[in-house]
Simulated assay, not measured.
Amino acid sequence: MDALIRHWAEIKARLEFLERLEQDIARLPESERSPLEARLMLARDLVGRTDPMPRFPAWLPPAERYPPRSFEEDE
């Protein structure tokens, strides 16, 4: 679960960074905006999917990861 949470936190940080860039670019003069908007689109493509749901079904809770041992196995 920790790895899943860390992954989501990293994605969220990247998204916030890109959103801030988008806001900053929007305040620039039109002549400066266009090339930076194109670069921002490339950066968003690089980040890729931002939905954590596709990774969640692969996560195994402790009970599935470490099934309980039967005491009879030790005898």
Rank of each mutant, 00 (worst) to 15 (best):
R65V: 07
L42W: 06
M53H: 03
R33H: 05
L15W: 00
P29S: 04
D24S: 14
V47Q: 03
D51V: 01
L40C: 10
E16Q: 11
A13Q: 12
L46M: 06
Y66E: 03
R27H: 12
D2W: 02
A26W: 02
L18C: 08
P62Y: 02
T50G: 15
Q23E: 12
L42Q: 13
A26L: 07
R27Q: 15
I5H: 01
E30S: 04
R49M: 08
D2M: 05
E30W: 02
L60Y: 07
L46I: 09
G48Q: 10
W8I: 04
E19Q: 14
I25M: 09
D2Y: 06
R27W: 00
L21H: 08
D74Y: 12
A3I: 01
A63C: 02
A63G: 00
E73P: 02
E64S: 09
D24P: 04
A38K: 07
A9E: 15
M1N: 04
L36Y: 03
F71A: 12
L42S: 14
S31G: 00
S31R: 12
L15P: 05
R6F: 01
H7V: 03
F56Y: 08
E72V: 05
D45V: 01
K12N: 12
M1P: 09
A26N: 12
A9N: 12
R39C: 08
Y66W: 13
K12S: 12
D45E: 15
A26P: 01
A9W: 02
P52L: 00
P67N: 09
E32D: 14
L40A: 10
L18N: 11
I5T: 06
M1S: 10
M41I: 15
P62N: 05
P67I: 10
L36V: 11
E19V: 03
R39M: 13
E72Y: 02
A13S: 10
T50F: 00
L42N: 11
I5G: 00
I11R: 06
E72A: 13
E72R: 08
L4R: 07
L4S: 10
R33Y: 07
A26E: 13
A43R: 10
R20V: 04
P68L: 05
R49Q: 11
R49L: 09
D74W: 08
D74T: 02
L36G: 10
E72N: 03
A26C: 03
E30R: 11
R55F: 02
Q23V: 04
R33P: 09
V47K: 01
S70H: 03
P54W: 03
E75C: 00
L18F: 09
R55N: 03
E72F: 11
E30T: 05
I25K: 09
L4P: 02
S34E: 15
E30D: 07
P62R: 05
A38Y: 05
L4N: 04
D51S: 08
A58R: 06
E22M: 06
S70G: 03
L4E: 04
E32I: 02
M41N: 14
R65T: 12
R20N: 11
I25P: 10
E32V: 00
P61N: 08
L46A: 15
E75Q: 05
D45S: 13
S70W: 06
D74I: 07
S31M: 04
R14K: 14
G48I: 12
L46F: 15
P57A: 01
R39A: 15
R44Q: 12
D45T: 15
G48H: 08
R49F: 04
F56I: 14
R55P: 00
R27E: 13
F56W: 09
